[in-house]
Nucleic acid binder design. Structure first.
Length: 419
RNA sequence: GGGGGAAUGUCCCGAGCGGCAAAGGGGGCGGACUGUAAAUCCGCUGGCUACGCCUUCGCAGGUUCGAGUCCUGCUUCCCCCA
């Protein structure tokens, strides 16, 4: 955390109170600027996947508060930079994505922001731009002369993103080495065209952002600022956002509102307060009350966290439905209608469907082998009864209200319906 | 250009005298205990039409009853010399 500086601007005060701030290039200067008028700030998003994930949410939330406190957010799509690939925090070169993939990913990512920001060309309406617009037009010689000359290789070699690779004797290709130059240039470009003076991002972006600030100074832009968030980890130190099945995606078609709700519901006790501040819009005094709950009561706070976070990203209705599904499933031990459902042909069930196949079809296990192992460990249940024989079959007599409830472990349930 | 190393279970790290579905971690998953938490303990962590069959140790061949392990060629990476 950066000193005990007391921000006077609404913007930094909110971010600071809610725990968003890790580092800032010039806290006092930025605070002053934000207090004296509307500023424009941006966060860049790489288009490496068809959806953003939890790790991206924290910076998106910063943009939200930026707008709420009267300033203008820019969401920068990395349509250009993704073609190069950011080496920060990565052990190995990522495979280059095709231009088509990048475009497709970009379109997948865009949607999320409309949940958190108002877009409009006027006032403090958010704007979305794509750095492919200017990066793809750069001419190599011009770029070297205008931009490249401001970069010192000596200094670039000392940047974490580069040093790490070199220290570990892992290859860093020239194309990746250029990433920070392009990102720096983005900042200057946005500062010229949109009067943007602040770039925010995760702490792993500090080096890239500060380089942009520096380039701005060398190229005679206005004073630029850098602001980063802490790296999102759980209280036990694990990197957030990775689950068994992969990342916690923000797009509903990749990670359903119900799964999303469950993700937050399973937060560790020690993280509840921090996450309420970061990922919900609840006022701080209310969060303080919730955080004060001790022992088993903290579960109430987790439900609020789950519902508020889900409502913010998906919708209030989806959040309430997820909460209700969870209530029926976990608190009453029933099978809520709204659990994830898999439909199979009625004939298949009438003929007797093998349990192993059923669990594979339901997507609860990846293979029949895994299903067998889980059965041995007592981890699979049909209508809440542990499965003991891998050769047993499911038939229509097991239908309860038209569905068979398949469960893996205590938390994952799927309804199997026949049609 | 010359010399020397390295690539292992498709999550990662990492052992591996010619008999290996391959030691050990980490991570993940399941079970017990709980509060859908943490900590702790136990189990699992190639596939299948499953007491049997099939496919795995960078790639392609070869020697052998049998190769991750030996030989040849290739690819990629690292180190030293130039």
């Amino acid at each position: 955390m950066t000193s005990d500086f007391q921000p006077k601007s609404d913007f930094l005060r909110v971010l600071s109170e809610r725990g968003f701030i890790h580092q800032c290039s010039d806290f006092a200067g930025l605070d002053e600027k934000a207090r004296n008028g509307r500023i424009t700030a941006y966060v860049g998003y790489d288009c490496t996947a068809p959806s953003l994930h939890i790790g991206n949410l924290i910076s998106a939330m910063m943009l939200h508060w930026l707008q709420q406190t009267g300033h203008r957010p820019i969401t920068l799509m990395g349509g250009g930079t993704t073609r190069v690939g950011d080496p920060s925090g990565k052990d190995e070169t990522r495979k280059l994505l095709t231009v088509e993939q990048i475009e497709a990913n970009k379109n997948g990512i865009k949607g999320v922001f409309s949940k958190l920001l108002h877009y409009s060309p006027d006032g403090n309406g958010a704007i979305m731009v794509d750095n492919a617009e200017w990066l793809t037009k750069l001419n190599y010689i011009d770029m070297l002369r205008d931009i490249g000359r401001h970069f010192s290789i000596n200094r670039m070699l000392s940047m974490d993103s580069v040093k790490l690779r070199l220290d570990r004797e892992q290859e860093l290709s020239f194309i990746e080495f250029n990433y920070m130059i392009l990102q720096s240039y983005d900042f200057v470009e946005l500062s010229r065209n949109y009067d943007c003076c602040l770039q925010m991002g995760g702490s792993d972006q500090w080096g890239n952002i500060v380089n942009g600030v520096d380039l701005g100074r060398r190229m005679g832009s206005q004073q630029l600022y850098a602001l980063t968030t802490p790296l999102l980890t759980t209280a036990s130190g694990a990197k957030m956002g990775k689950t068994a099945s992969g990342a916690v995606w923000l797009n509903a078609d990749m990670f359903s509102p119900y799964e999303y709700w469950q993700f937050w519901r399973n937060t560790e006790d020690a993280d509840v307060s921090r996450f309420l501040k970061l990922f919900t819009l609840l006022p701080l005094d209310e969060i303080a009350k919730l955080s004060a709950l001790g022992g088993a009561e903290i579960n109430e706070a987790k439900k609020v966290l789950a519902t508020e976070a889900t409502a913010l990203l998906h919708s209030r209705a989806a959040a309430d439905e997820a909460a209700e599904t969870a209530r029926q499933t976990f608190e009453q031990g029933g099978a809520a209608e709204t659990l994830p459902t898999i439909i199979i042909p009625a004939a298949e069930l009438a003929d007797g469907l093998g349990v192993l196949a059923a669990f594979v079809t339901a997507g609860l296990v990846a293979s029949t082998g895994e299903a067998r192992r889980l059965i041995q460990g007592g981890g699979l249940r049909v209508n809440d009864e542990a499965v003991s024989d891998p050769r047993s079959t499911l038939d229509p007599t097991l239908l309860r209200d038209g569905a068979i409830k398949l469960s893996m472990g205590k938390k994952k349930h799927v309804l199997l319906k026949a049609e």
